[in-house]
Structures are given as structure tokens and as C-alpha cells.
Design a protein around this nucleic acid. Sequence first.
DNA 1: ACCCAGGTGCTGC
DNA 2: GCAGCACATGGG
Length: 305
Amino acid sequence: MAFEIETGYFDARKIAASGQVFRMYEAGAGAFDVYSADKHLRLTEERREDGQSCTGTDGPEKDNVILRLYCPEKDLRYWRWYLDLDRDYEAVIRLVDAKDGYLRSCCEAGRGIRILRQNTWEMMISFIISQQKQIPSIRKCIEGLCAKLGSRMEGWYAFPTAEQIAAAGPAGVQGLSLGYRERYIYETAVQYLDHGIPDGTLASMPYSDAKKYLLSFTGIGEKVANCILLFGAGFVDAFPIDTHIKDILYREYYLPNLNGKTPVPQDKLTMRDYERLTEEHFARYSGVRGIVQQWIFASEVAPKG
DNA sequence: ACCCAGGTGCTGC
DNA sequence: GCAGCACATGGG
């Protein structure tokens, strides 16, 4: 079944390349296959040329995209929610400090990127895999894991459930180039079956409780927890700080604001220092800092199509 | 051969 | 609390 939705601020290619989702593939001009847990969506995107391609000015693009969702009717609500179409991203763009030229260029480059509301369990395992890996390699590992342990669908594999990973035993996660993450994945699956999610969904918990819960799993630390909260639980204020974001914070917000003081070398800055930098310079984006983070990451780190 | 990748766990102070 | 190190594997 095809369902048509008019929207604005949507760029599927940028979303697919933004590093937040690993199972979203371009399948020809303006068409994308998205896989989430045991669901599949074929998405097409048609852009109306409303005047010009807004380079320079920041005039809001109003409902200039027609999305077509091809999926079973019972999944329509899931995918609509997944795409986060109800959030006003133009309002977030309007928050951007006019004096912050760097961030202005990032949000222009990142215009059209929405923060997807992905499956929490899938994000837990995906971002455990992501540590110390590059995005193409992460994709390969995830597809390998799906093919080995996930349910076979028509022409693709579902993301393996915690039951499937745990039932396969420690050997189930071997032979997939997961390296030292094998243990993290297997143990997290077992722990997930034990603890479950305390009270329904992470999204319904207070932020700090949700984070504490995630940190209790083997292989989930501060950075991975923030990615899960941001991409898999709807906490758009979560701000994952990885090596790239560290470099950028140091270059764009630490060095230019020394006021004559002698710089501390970057490898001397602690995690607290980076958190302090974010607090200082991104306070005005409180509540939506994850969106800002994604603009930065996508415009500077993610593979440029 | 060397360095790095969307880091985390463990140890020792 | 925070530093220092080990941990697999693939790619430049």
C-alpha cells in the first residue's frame, strides 16, 4: 500500500548518510529502503522546486516535499512516528545564534535531517557495534548479524531480537568481525532478557533514569548511551560526544575563545571539559541539542554523498 | 609498519 | 573522581 504525505524539511539522502541510521539504503533516484526491527518501508521523495534552492537566505521551506510510504497499512503509524514528521525543525533553525557562523553553515548543510525515532533495542546493539569502527564497517557488521541471527523475511533479514541473540549462545555472535564487541553484544542480550525495560519504554522514563538504565549494560558507556537516547528513545536533548565532536569543539569553540590565554593541548582536555564547552556554547539549544549535534556531525563527519 | 575508527571496562591511585 | 592501558578488526 502507498500512502502520500506532504511535508517540509525532509531530505532522505542526508538522513541516510547522517550516521544515525545504518539500515537505510538508497534504491535508485529518490527511493529508499528502510529496515527497522522486523519492518520494512519503501520510501520515495519528490521535491517541488519552490522558487530557488535557498542558498544564502534562510527562508523556511513549506511543505515542499511529497513522501510516499509503501508499507503494510498496519505499519503506517509506526513509520509516520519513526520519521518524526511532527517536529518543527525550522523553529530550531531559528534558534541558531546569528553570530555563530560555524553553526549556521552546519545547519544549512544539515537542513532536511530529522532525528529518526528508531527501535530502542536495535539502537542498543547497533551503537555497541559502532564503537571504534567506521560507518561502512558498522553497516557490514549489522547486516552480518541480521543475516546470521535475524528472522528471514522476503529478500531481507529482520534485526535479531534479544531472545535470538541470547539463544544462539556466545558462538552466535562469532565470525562477524565484531572483535571485542562480541562479548558486549551477547551479554547485553542476556541482561536485556533479565532486566527487560523497567516500565514499558525508555521514552516514557525521565532522561536520567533512562540513561542510568542503559549504562547498566555491558558495552554501553556515556557516548553510546547518548546515541541510544537520541536516536532510539526520542530524547532530542541528548548530545553524544565522540572523537569527531571533540575535535570540532576544540577547534571551533575552545581555541577561538582563549582571550589571550595559552591553549591547553587537546589531548589534555577531559570529558568534563568537553561537557563544559557544550554547556557554555550550546546552552541556548537546551532541549534540542541532539538536533544541533546531528547537523554538526552530518555536515562535517558523515560521508558526503 | 603505523595510525585511527561515532569507546568501554578494568585497574590503580 | 581521573589517568593509563588492553581490547579486535579493517582501512588509509
